[in-house]
Amino acid sequence: MSDVAVFDRLFGAGGHTVEISGHLVRGGAQVAGRPVAVIGTWNAAAVDGDLALAVSAAVLQVVAEDAKAGATPRPIVFIADTQGQELSRREELLGLNGCFAHVARCVDLARRRGHPTLTLIHGEAVSGGFLAFGLVADRVCALPGAQVRVMDLRAMSRVTKIPLERLQGLAKDSPVFAPGADNYWRMGAVDELWPDTDEGWDERLAAALAAVASAPEGDRRAAIGAERGGRTLAEAVAAAVRDA
């Protein structure tokens, strides 16, 4: 279960206006005395088109408000808590993939307009629900206890034709395959693993946002994954194609 106390730890009690509506997180807060927007999903949301479009609408609203006011673009803190995409025939029919692409495009617009973007994984971050906005952000932090994975092992077994028992065994020791925020850190897709304490979250958050502001342009995840030894081929192969 998601716990709303997380916002008090992040922003200080009374230091935010974050509200939960169904599976949507929306509000504002102050970090180091400056305003940030808070947008996300909650309670292991199965992200459907309505929720995805609520997230994209919130992003566009922040971009539009700051543009209209001529204000410094606010950082956007995304809260990712999703069990993945909603699995249904209706969502497929209506193009849930297109809704996710739209969310990614909105986050990319915010980035190009100067909004620093940061994802905090709270609870779980799974597959398509994570791809849509969590993984598009400039920086990703896993809060204590965060789970990151691709897919339910039963479904994985049926698709790969590998017996469930073998997958369960492999999942225990393979970083490229196994669920876990630490594996995603090693592969360069998670930047910070927050230690399991209730203290100092406000300072960590301020430091993470400062790190976004000072980060070099471009997508450095593969290079970082190579440095950390979790993803040794991606950067080299991409470079070989770039320079061939």
């Binding site: 990614a104 791809l131 691709v150 970083p175 897709a189 997508d219 993803r231």
Partner: peptide
Amino acid sequence: VRLHEANAGLIAISEIMRAVLAAQA
């Protein structure tokens, strides 16, 4: 995503998404 290397595949897709957006930009 290729489920045999699921984490690497998911991250690779995210990188492709970013690269498509950068090419379009």
